[in-house]
Design a protein around this nucleic acid. Structure first.
Lengths: 196, 196
DNA sequence: CTACATGTAGACAGACCTGTCTACCTAATT
DNA sequence: AATTAGGTAGACAGGTCTGTCTACATGTAG
């Protein structure tokens, strides 16, 4: 292990490929976008893609995995800004509101990708991991918030969260995430979560 | 206008194509499935497809339009079984529960199709019509049920409805529509809908 | 009998897809 | 100085895609 350059200067082919895949796959769909367009936007040779990832499927998995990691990071930072579990739950809907308001929002990347897969597929594992993480997070927060039935409340909160993403993908009018936040407050109240 | 045969005996190429498109497009995606597989399953010549529909895009529009009409019909029949607006709203979630429980359920066909389109596309119009109809139906029922803010309640109910469809598409565990129904009851209660 | 609508079968064009391969280049480590 | 890791450029194979076209079959209306 010799000295590695502290500043790599050049962005590696892997990172440029992931960035290009992120833009193109999310915006236009994993089946619609071909390899050629990805390497063109990344400014990378085709051989590099196959050296690094081995196949398009693996590139898709890496793209979704990177999105999952990025969301975990972003959510963790946002949750750290709040103290009570109740506020943290609402913060998740605030995050969705900001995300869905951005230009180019097209809904949940995992739902979109899953819609394009035929039959069983290794890409589905990444989707399941992401969904499990989200549901677990809601369940954990619901329990800490003192909900009578944390699993049941979490399931309902996930419904609202997914619904807000779908509306952001399909409907021209915004505001779905805000409506979801309001509904989440009511459901928490009915579930016995105390109001500070 | 001469006498038309009362019993056509043979199913027209159009109907067989729509039936094949329904199965294949919904199950595997509109981009993934090629024309050749559709005409093979329909047992129809390629020229017939292009004589009747003119293009694959038009076939997709017809497929989604037929789904929209079928859902309107199915929902109308179910709503007719109930008297109060409150029960009719809950019946919509019962319908979703039954639909999502069927083998081969893959989520909302319009959301799935929309996820595969790149940029603006005439297929999106059919999706928007379907979503407008659903939201209008919820709004109408919410108003008749005496909700304080029918538009707001309808928006929340649509969130739950979409969320249930997403969960049915993505998650192995069922029961999402039932959770959505429970949440819908709570939201109605909070919105001032009287309990019979 | 004729004319027409509706259908079948399948070849074909032109484009795009994934994945492999050869040949070359550049910079850092040994 | 030599080696090696990582990258570029692009041709190529084999397949699939949409859409068009020709040629033929069948049944019904006038």
């Amino acid at each position: 292990m010799s000295t590695k350059p502290a500043v790599p200067e050049k962005i590696s082919a892997r990172e440029r490929l992931l960035a290009a895949a992120e833009e193109l796959f999310y915006e236009e769909g994993i089946n619609t976008v071909g390899i050629d367009r990805v390497i063109e936007r990344a400014g990378v040779a085709k051989a590099s893609l196959y050296n690094v990832f081995g196949s398009k499927d693996e590139l898709i998995r890496a793209y979704l995995g990177a999105r999952h990691e990025a969301r975990k990071e972003r959510v963790a930072q946002r949750l750290a800004r709040h103290d009570t579990p109740r506020e943290k739950i609402l913060a998740l809907f605030d995050d969705m509101r900001e995300t869905a308001a951005k230009a180019g929002f097209r809904g949940c990347a995992f739902v979109r990708a899953s819609a394009e897969l035929r039959g069983e597929h290794s890409v589905r594992d990444v989707c399941n991991e992401s969904r499990g993480w989200l549901r677990g997070l809601f369940t954990d927060l619901a329990r800490k918030a003192g909900a009578r039935d944390p699993e049941a409340l979490a399931r309902q909160l996930v419904l609202l969260y997914d619904g807000a993403a779908v509306s952001g993908q399909m409907d021209a009018a915004g505001g779905a995430a805000l409506a979801a936040r309001d509904a989440a407050m009511l459901l928490m109240k009915s579930s016995g979560v105390s109001f500070s």
